[in-house]
Design a protein around this nucleic acid. Structure first.
Lengths: 337, 337
DNA sequence: CTGAAAGCGCTTACAG
DNA sequence: CTGAAAGCGCTTACAG
């Protein structure tokens, strides 16, 4: 069973040409269905290619064509649901466009982000989809779509969800339930979503004149449930604890919910909760979470489409900014039902 | 700000050579730190490369070297936690070895799996990490590590967790709590983990003489919570419903738990539950789930290491099969605490 | 220590 | 309709 001796060299177009008794150039054109090649020749070449098991070498094609089919995706952490589902969506539309995806992880480290950028550039990717962690400020010279965390003025497009409005919707819903002491637990305002969502909260409570009773707590940079739980505990320890809380993301909601449970507070009776980014199985949680529907897969598809568009249109003008609309999925944690 | 006119051609080694006043071959060697090049020349070349912003073209390198740095990973669905975290682990060790990862999704479709295989092969990846959905039976000619779903006799290595033993541990734990009517909800036995885990359950109840009161229900091929919930409902509708249930995976546990909740059965009092594959935030669920710790990231790292090993050792002999040990994370759903 | 030449596997003007 | 030649950007024997 073991493979003996030397590597069984790959079949090349020269092999195919020889087998079909034509020149390599003719074989190449035949395989490309060029109209300039006779049907009989095409058939002969195709057969030769088939029986030899010819697989074109994309490396060679890319070099010759000075353009490959690779697209780079740089994310802070593929292990995180949001990013992996974004990749899934992007991969899907890119694949259908005959492109492949090089996924690079940065672990939210600036150095790794820079290295990732260098690497994909060396691979001569046609374009890039990136969610920066704020690491690299260099302008990239190839078509780039920034998502989640935006990079003002750079790239061909930016995509994010309607962060401010989203939080506004969440606050409004809570107010509809009669809450006036509404707290917010969010990711740090260093990156786009953390900052815009916090902004949205501040804006909403301002508009509703609720500032005085609207405490804000922040989770850590990874938006970890642990740090969110600690934040929730701080809120519960307040002299006048909030009766409802808005969380800026699924993992934060999870942490907050578990903190409430440990503290013996019933949800939604003692404290209601609504969240941005529906937890992946949000309807299975106890209570089922009222949240803004996830837009990760859709965002991936959109970002990929925008990139594809820029790729064949040629990049011109300032980046377009696209905001994905959000929609409230009403379940039980808010007090409904 | 818009980029004007023609593409700004990439800087090549010829440009660097010219700037440093040496031949391209010398520039190439200098950049590779060849001992045959004088220090002064090296310095000159490095400086030229730096000021010109030279980035080697990996496409060209790969073609010339007849070996690239790409590794393919083929998974049923990157959007699923298990796979995305596997990718994260694999990516990490591969990246440290100077390799990049091409991720392909199959959506559990045989046709897409075959296409994915063709694609990565055309990219001349050095090796492959694949979780088949049973789609392709063809032997792949490059070093391949199969994971999760195994392919007997093929590839350089197989990695999976200790499925049978794992379920045995789960059953034993439930028996330790005094249960005798123990049900099982699992994925279909078509692929490795579904089949081995079911096997493990059957083996355990046989060994314990519990067969008569050990109903088995199956979820769908995607192991969806919805189908698991339906399975749980069937179990609860039994004349003598089980007092405990073993689920073969995290998503199945989630579905089963929600079905119990909807049916008004308290957990673990009315029905206890233990699961394979700890849900990602299993400790935050209500009740916190007793489960076998996840080994996805570790599995990714292991699979990548095995591949790397095969890559520099050269493939010989039959595939090694590695089983990741499992460990029980005791929490509340089983009745502990 | 450095350079000229060949070649990795393709594709596309350029001829015929 | 088909072929011979050049070249994408590198690296590595082979000379010197």
């Amino acid at each position: 069973m073991a493979v003996e001796g030397s590597e069984p060299r790959h079949v090349t177009i020269v092999d195919v040409a020889r087998a079909a008794n034509v020149a390599p150039s003719t074989a190449s054109r035949a395989l490309q269905e060029s109209p300039r090649i006779s049907d009989s020749t095409k058939r002969r070449v195709r057969e030769a290619a088939h029986t030899l098991g010819y697989r074109p070498n994309r490396i060679a094609q890319s070099l010759r064509l000075r353009a490959g089919t690779l697209v780079g995706i740089i994310v802070p952490d593929v292990g995180v649901n949001f990013y992996s589902r974004f990749v899934k969506g992007a991969q899907d539309v890119l694949e259908h466009a005959g492109r492949q995806v090089l996924v690079l992880n940065t672990e939210r480290q600036a150095a790794r982000e820079k290295a990732a950028l260098r690497t994909v550039l060396e691979h001569r990717v046609s374009g890039l989809l990136v969610a920066t962690s704020g690491g690299s400020d260099e302008e990239v010279r190839i078509p780039t779509v920034y998502f989640d965390n935006l990079a003002p003025g750079r790239g061909v497009a930016h995509v994010a969800c309607a962060n401010r409005e989203g939080v506004g919707i969440l606050v409004d819903h809570l107010v509809g339930h009669g809450h006036t002491r509404i707290a917010y637990i969010g990711g740090p305002p260093t990156l786009t979503s953390g900052s815009e969502r916090l902004d949205g909260f501040l804006g909403a409570v301002g508009r509703l004149r609720l500032q005085a009773s609207a405490p804000v707590e922040l989770a850590d940079a990874a938006w970890s449930p642990g740090s969110a739980a600690a934040a929730m505990e701080r809120l519960l320890a307040l002299p006048e604890p909030p009766t409802a809380v808005v969380t800026s993301g699924d993992t934060i909601a999870l942490g907050a919910m578990s903190a409430c449970r440990r503290a013996g507070r019933r949800m939604p009776d003692d404290v209601a909760l609504v969240s941005f980014d529906d937890p992946v199985y949000g309807e299975l949680l106890d209570p089922p979470v009222t949240a803004l529907g996830r837009s990760d897969v859709a965002m991936g598809k959109l970002a990929a489409s925008l990139l594809l568009h820029a790729l064949d249109a040629g990049t011109l003008g300032p980046p377009t900014e696209v905001r994905l609309p959000v929609e409230l999925v009403v379940r039980r944690s808010c007090g409904c039902g």
